[in-house]
Design a protein around this nucleic acid. Structure first.
Lengths: 99, 99
DNA sequence: TTGGTATATCGGGAAAAGTCGATATATCTT
DNA sequence: AAGATATATCGACTTTTCCCGATATACCAA
């Protein structure tokens, strides 16, 4: 888990927004309700809310996942993303003791 | 204080290292001893330790200052830099509540 | 097996960041 | 006032990031 990679992932307004939205999926992605929130929120929902293209959002989610800040679950043709709180715990450790 | 700007400032190995070194100036910048540590560490000392050019280090320190992570004191021909712990407090707040 | 839908990957052009050497500015010393 | 030293800024070049459209892949449904 590279520190620089984590901070690079956080160096983008849209990616920060996605992470924040994923804190309260029920509030921020109501259209996801019919599929449930257990596995997270699917890419299409996130894409719509950002207003960016599908490819960009897919790329951004990969970036966040490589940094350890989200995790994904593939279910059928959907990929659900949710926050990875372990990643944030690591981030807190880094800031407390390594910076 | 822009969130993205803070994370961009942290998205660089050398800048992270500088911040970490400045946690213990006495240990990491012993040559600074004769001038004291009260105002921080001067650019030249930091430059030597990074191995980067003077202009790059000066630029990096400005970047960190714009992000609120260090503060500077000019004394004579020297500019001393030290950590700005308020900035780190803000960073912690951002991570806790805005991401 | 043929479409249809959701996501991922690829290729690219524009903008930003990384890093340098050269030069400017500020200050100190003599 | 002149030279020396410390730092900041400028101009340039290379690498990375941003973000897109097009295409590929995976899965589902008829």
């Amino acid at each position: 888990m590279d520190q620089v990679e984590i901070f690079k992932a956080l160096s983008n307004k849209s990616r920060l927004q996605i992470l924040n939205w994923l804190k309260e999926p029920e509030t921020n992605f109501p259209d996801q309700a019919e599929y449930g929130y257990a596995n997270g929120v699917c890419v299409g929902q996130i894409q719509m809310k950002t207003g960016l293209t599908q490819s960009t959002v897919s790329e951004y989610l990969s970036t966040l996942q490589r940094a350890g800040l989200v995790k994904s679950n593939r279910v059928g043709q959907w990929t659900y993303y949710q926050r990875n709180e372990e990643g944030f715990a690591i981030l807190n450790e880094i800031i407390k003791s390594e910076i």
